[in-house]
């Protein structure tokens, strides 16, 4: 994890800004998909100042909006920030212009996956997929199963073993999933899910 302050120093210093698409094109696409007018942003940095996760991000949220306005598609879709954002809405609550930053981040994650760009935090994508696999199968989250499969996928066996064992000892991880009776209704919902989830 980078400990540098993104506000002071962007991840990769660059001298030339190459504008990938006509200015406004990418921003317009994201505005349409997210339903939030990010062009209202006047770079006050309220979102960045409030974000609890800023230290783990490569671009502060306001800079993500700026990159969108500059049409820098790859930069935005490949950045860590969109995956680190957990959607806590601290920024949305603080934004003086009422920009729904979390909706922008949701949109960008989806675009990143749909366009098949390199995902900056593949383990987070893996985690979300495991949660969805559990939801598809049971209709509810079975945490032990999710964590087990996540471990298999990311091969991070030893990290966090102590926490996992403590949770098991405290009976916080149920061995058996609780499940929805009307499985066909749940399965049906997953038909819109864009990816082969098997």
């Amino acid at each position: 994890m980078s400990q540098t302050t993104p506000l002071a120093k962007p991840a990769a210093p660059r001298t030339v800004i190459e504008v990938g698409q006509p200015r406004g094109f990418l921003a317009a696409e994201v505005i349409e998909k997210s339903g939030t007018d990010l062009n209202r942003c006047y770079q006050c940095h309220a979102c960045a100042n409030g974000c609890p996760f800023i230290r783990a991000m490569d671009y502060p949220p306001n800079l993500v909006l700026r990159l969108l306005q500059f049409g820098m598609r790859e930069e935005v879709l490949r950045c860590k920030t969109i995956w680190i954002c957990v959607g806590c809405h601290t920024c949305s609550s603080q934004c003086p212009m009422g920009i729904d930053m979390a909706a922008v981040m949701d949109t960008l994650r989806l675009m990143a996956v749909e366009e098949g760009v390199a995902i900056a935090k593949p383990n987070i994508l893996d985690f979300h997929e495991e949660v969805l696999r559990s939801l598809e199968r049971y209709g509810r989250a079975h945490k032990l199963g999710i964590m087990w499969r996540y471990k298999v996928k990311t091969r991070r066996w030893l990290s966090d073993l102590d926490v996992g064992l403590k949770m098991l000892a405290k009976r916080k991880l149920d061995l058996r999933p609780s499940r929805v009776q009307a499985q066909e209704e749940i399965g049906d919902l997953f038909k819109c899910y864009w990816r082969e989830s098997k």
Binding site: L110, H128, L135, A141, Y193
Partner: peptide, 24 residues
């Protein structure tokens, strides 16, 4: 017979799914 509200994972991966799970 409630189901998961969708949580951040459905919200991240598919908006229709997220809406559908909560709406059910």
């Amino acid at each position: 017979d409630w189901n998961c509200c969708g949580s951040s994972s459905a919200q991240t991966m598919c908006k229709n799914l997220s809406l559908g799970m909560a709406a059910r």
